[in-house]
Design a protein around this nucleic acid. Structure first.
Lengths: 182, 182, 182, 182
DNA sequence: AATGAATGAGCATTCATTCAT
DNA sequence: TATGAATGAATGCTCATTCAT
């Protein structure tokens, strides 16, 4: 078999790793699975990434923060006086509907970070990303609480395999936001 | 090696499994690890539990619902007019301080339930347990939201390896509770 | 659990063993499979049959000789001047159509007998049974050849998963039978 | 233990597999047995052959068709007017005398093919090989019947552990061959 | 007489990683 | 530089059989 000239091998491995994780979860990631998915010799994966963790980190880092990104890219949040609760509820609903695997991945990442310190920074980035955006519309304490409540709501939806109730989400999120002081 | 007479071997395997899970997470559960922990031959684990899942289910079921139990056993919740937000914040703080491994286990269970349907009922029991108690002090919508927010707060604490701020928790939980109508 | 009074346990084990072999082949026979099939505790199988081989022998012996039996019970062979080739072809066709699993079992038995001496006598009984009947209508050499040819034809049918051509069988079987000398 | 440089390891595994099958039958084939026979670490067998079936197929394929090969290589069959029955009887006798294990293997292959579809093509190759040669000396129907009869005769020899009677074989084979029409 | 429990050997397979080429 | 080969540990699971009760 002839040596392959494949300058973007590294990137293709990352993409393959993401597909594997999306399909089988973080636990399902293995050198073999990635090599097969990328149609690349097994040795190649360990050549480009000294360890599985390194590959996992590279893959997750490029995923660009799941929910945080959806929030950051929201046009509504760009405007100052927007209805934060309603907008968060809307984005969440859309995210859950569009990218269920991505949602699961986000929580898998959080859990995995508990046991793999290398994942901590990534998990922190993802969490902080949302808070950062929200802080522009409310105080830090409220921002943190909003994120926590949303996390809890998403977890419940995933768990019960139930459907997401946007109006419910909007309503309880709104309760967390203090009435403006004139 | 002589045959051992060992009634309660089954129970000892469950206990060993819980220790293994506490130490290495659900992902770290293996027949071999349990057998070693219980000081029992490997074949014994598969004799008593036809599959790993069966053992895992037995172990989790006996754990008695982590947080749900802490809530249910709270003396304060027995009284009608108690300060729900304050009490929840208190219990959570105590739980996080006393049984960190148990907290992680709870979230691992939730996540694992996503991929292992056999765990769903157990996860449901745990979640519903808390809501059930809360419903005696507030409406169902609020109860669900309180649980979600607590879930989110715990997740953040676990993730950031940070300390739990009871006063913060009490304050934002309180916001979720509607003002009583006279 | 209360001790079961079950006087025909032995027989039920044999029946269960036959069902297991029919489903999974001789290789699929195991104490566990039989115990489950008979809804009987595992220990019971080894109590009634000291070894797997013993159970297998008991089961095969009661099967009553597959093809040999079909031949022996043929009404046509009872009559002296019958068309042996046609009748053999007919019986074989019916047997293949009615009891495919039985046919496979017969050849599995033959093969297994190669490695398990205890099965030899049973295999011999089965083979000889047919010859015995045929000898009443033709000479021993021809009888043996007829059986051999039928064995070969059945093997081909099983192997190619093809259909059985009764007319073809009749025709070539007939060639083996010497023309009667007046 | 030092890493071994061992090109042709793959081939050695195939050879070892054949020895194992020859000794213990197809049912006796296992990764462990092969690894031990080839004096190679266990992991090596699964590296070169992703599954046992794959190894079995590779081994059987290289065996080169047992009886079919003996027939094809017969010098007599190269000549047009040869005595087919006599030659077949001769070859069979030689084969049975020279390679008893190979004969058993052939029938084991046929039986195993019933349950393992991957073996079907190999079994088909073996069977068809003989017929192909014979068709050059007689019509297809007769060719098929000759093969069937030989199969049956061999089966009987194996089964009764008896000796092969070449003259008997020649005689009954001859009966299958239609008299030439002038 | 009957059986639940026990056990050790065995099974196929997956895996992360190392290394000779 | 790139990779096929190698390896040893580990995985879940099945099994025939033995034995204490």
């Amino acid at each position: 078999m002839t040596r392959r000239y494949d300058p973007e091998r590294r990137q293709r491995l990352i993409d393959a790793a993401l597909r594997v994780v999306g399909r089988a979860g973080i636990a399902g990631l293995s050198h073999r699975a990635v090599a097969a998915e990328a149609d690349v010799p097994l040795g190649s994966t360990t050549y480009h990434f000294a360890s599985l963790d390194e590959l996992l980190v590279a893959a997750l880092r490029q995923t660009n923060e799941g929910f945080a990104r959806a929030v950051r890219e929201s046009a509504a949040f760009a405007r100052p006086g927007c209805d934060v609760a309603a907008e968060l509820a809307r984005i969440t609903g859309e995210w859950l509907a569009r990218d269920r695997a991505g949602v699961e991945l986000e929580y898998e990442l959080y859990l995995a970070a508990l046991h793999k310190p290398v994942l901590r920074p990534i998990a922190a980035e993802w969490t902080d990303g949302v808070t950062e955006t929200l802080v522009r519309h409310t105080d830090p304490v409220t921002a943190r609480a909003l994120v926590a409540l949303l996390d809890g709501i998403c977890l419940q939806v995933l768990l019960t395999d139930g459907t997401y109730d946007e109006e419910y989400a909007r309503q309880v999120l709104a309760r967390l936001i203090p009435a403006p002081v004139d």
